[in-house]
């Protein structure tokens, strides 16, 4: 056993160099800055800037505004955070609504195919786009959604449009759902496949109709997959900068873009790092809340 443990050393070294060290560096930058003489000093200016009330904007959250009439002035970065959260949550919910039935279909196919002993074509087709680069896949959407793109040309034939798909919540949400849907479907599918058909039959046998069987047996048994699916969609959706950058046309600011700009354009490592730390804390906290619901379920999907 001891010799086997040595096999884990390369990975531990990997983690140390590429995960822990950068994390510590970010934490270090978040609390430090250079003064005019080039000397490093401890500071909270990064965090102050994030929460600074000097520059405020109206909170631009559609649901809060339209449903509750909330019209707050908030610091710019708080708005960015809220906007990211809104789009990430929205994308996660859409992924769940589309992904669960899709996972069901795939699981059923998988079960039937396993019976016949051949591969699952549906699953193969579903996973295939993931082999392509995310950048390319997202660019492809540009070609589709542009004002003079394919979809608008087709709509033009029936005298609709051109519809503005890009550079708004819709475009970004679509990009996220498209890119992250597999991460919702696969964990749910892997849990659904494991549910014994006889358990479903037992529910029917005991008087449960289809709806009751789903709500009382299938859904609770697939919860571990649902929770890890939510995790695996919500996290990248919350942090991505690629998708809003491309489909948001560069003027759409989510938290990922804000961080990228601090580093790449403003060269303000302190604020960028502070934002990163805040995002990290936020994501970890939301994961923690989710896993609390999960209890000790070892039937989980890809991630627990």
């Amino acid at each position: 056993m001891k010799s086997l443990r040595r096999l884990t050393y390369p990975y531990l070294i990997w983690i140390a160099i590429f995960t822990l060290a950068p994390l510590l560096l970010v934490a270090f930058y978040a609390f430090t800055a250079y003064d005019a003489t080039g000397k490093l000093f401890f500071t909270l200016q990064g965090f102050n800037k994030v929460f600074s009330t000097a520059d405020t904007v109206a909170l631009n959250i559609f649901a809060l505004k339209s449903l509750f009439g909330i019209d707050w002035q908030v610091p710019i970065y708080v708005n960015v955070f809220a906007k990211s959260l809104e789009i990430a949550l929205f994308s996660t919910i859409i992924c769940l609504l589309i992904g669960y039935p899709a996972a069901w279909l795939l699981a059923r196919g998988e079960r039937e195919n396993r019976h016949r002993g051949n591969g699952n074509l549906l699953l193969f087709l579903f996973v295939m786009p993931m082999w392509m680069n995310a950048l390319l896949r997202t660019y492809a959407w540009l070609a589709l959604l542009e004002p003079r793109g394919i979809i608008n040309s087709l709509l033009g034939l029936v005298n609709i449009g051109p519809v503005q798909f890009l550079y708004n919540d819709f475009g970004i949400g679509l990009g996220m759902v498209y890119n992250y849907l597999p991460f919702m479907v696969l964990p749910i599918q892997s849990v659904l496949v494991k549910i014994s058909p006889s358990v479903i039959e037992a529910a029917e046998d005991l008087g449960a109709n289809r709806r009751q069987t789903f709500l009382r047996v299938i859904l609770p048994l697939s919860m571990p997959g649902v929770l890890s699916g939510i995790n695996m969609v919500f996290m990248p959706a919350m942090t991505t900068f690629l998708i809003p950058d491309l489909l948001g046309g560069g003027r759409y600011l989510l938290i990922g873009n804000a961080i990228e700009r601090q580093f790449m354009i403003s060269r303000d490592m302190t604020t960028g790092s502070a934002l990163s730390i805040l995002l990290l804390v936020f994501v970890l906290a939301s994961m923690r809340i989710l896993t609390r619901y999960e209890k000790e379920n070892d039937e989980g999907g890809l991630l627990t």
Binding site: S196, S198, V199, E201, A202, E204, D205, L206, G207, N209
Partner: peptide, 18 residues
């Protein structure tokens, strides 16, 4: 099945694990 007045004891129990 859910409207039949018969109940089944399954070969592999088929208890609800949750």
């Amino acid at each position: 099945p859910y409207q039949r007045q018969l109940n089944t004891v399954f070969q592999r129990y088929a208890l609800f694990p949750h």
